[in-house]
Design a binder for these strands. Structure first.
Lengths: 148, 148
DNA sequence: GCTGGCGTTGACGTATGGGTCAATGTTTAG
DNA sequence: CTAAACATTGACCCATACGTCAACGCCAGC
């Protein structure tokens, strides 16, 4: 099938598919006229990418899964690299959850203080929070990105 | 004081301070030679911005707080607009927490399945997760951004 | 007077995942 | 034959919060 059909089938756009190709995630053979030719295996790769992206994986993080599928495995996470990404992502999400819980508490405290008359928030606790935040941020962004 | 001193005092850079000015967050009067002249009140504004950014507020979200301070209030959250931002942020963080919890569960499930022999993950649950995800993503990004 | 350190504005770079033309070629239906 | 519908590559656009030059002005000390 050609790129338009694959895009419709997978519920994405031709632009995205070509972009995946530039990222080395989706290699398609060319017809004599230069058109890309896809088959069912490509569709599976695209679905794998979409599934992982939906959970918040960066495109780069889907690479091991895609390569695992291309290597002939029936599942993208049958390879060590893929499982390693699972573990890393889990750790990132946990860090983000922890961090967000603190942020939540802090905002709630600020909100309570302000509606109760606007008492100034303690600087010491803010400084502590800020350092925690930096650590989380520098830990390579665990929170899911926007998709649009 | 001049911009370099303010930057050092506040622990930021001159670039950031000038950027705040272009965003209309930090208006500084000019000396005869064109240099920006800051005082203690500006330092407080910068600290307010930093405090809020540390909790994951976008620059734009700090505007009501800054204007509230400039309006003469002793606290940036003494104004209705600021409190409204608190509430919105709280809702965003809650949405992100909820979403991340689901993501965490999904990744944990995938990980368990893969290390137990690579059983394929259920498509139905993935589809459900994906829809939840889109909803969270489209709700204007609640998760704290990276700082670097 | 010259060097160094500070200030100014302007403009481009960063990362992410594509969207959106534009100019051009190919294939298919009528 | 021609128009529509598809394909190709290339290039610029989006947001965010600055970093990093570049080219230049101002001022203090030696």
């Amino acid at each position: 099938m050609r790129i338009g059909e694959l895009a419709r089938t997978a519920g994405t756009t031709t632009r995205a598919l070509r972009y995946y190709e530039t990222q080395g995630l989706l290699h398609a053979p060319r017809r004599s006229n230069g058109y890309r030719e896809y088959d069912e295996s490509h569709l599976r790769l695209v679905r794998e990418i979409q599934t992982l992206q939906a959970v918040g994986f960066a495109l780069e993080d889907t690479r091991p899964f895609v390569e695992c599928l291309r290597a002939g495995n029936e599942s993208g996470d049958a390879c060590a690299d893929s499982v390693a990404v699972y573990r890393r992502k889990l750790a990132e999400v946990d860090a983000c959850l922890e961090r967000l819980s603190e942020v939540r508490a802090e905002i709630a405290a600020k909100l309570a203080a302000s509606s109760l008359g606007g008492e100034p928030v303690l600087n010491s606790s803010l400084r502590k929070l800020r350092s925690v935040t930096r650590a989380c941020h520098q830990r390579e962004e665990a929170c899911p990105r926007r998709s649009r």
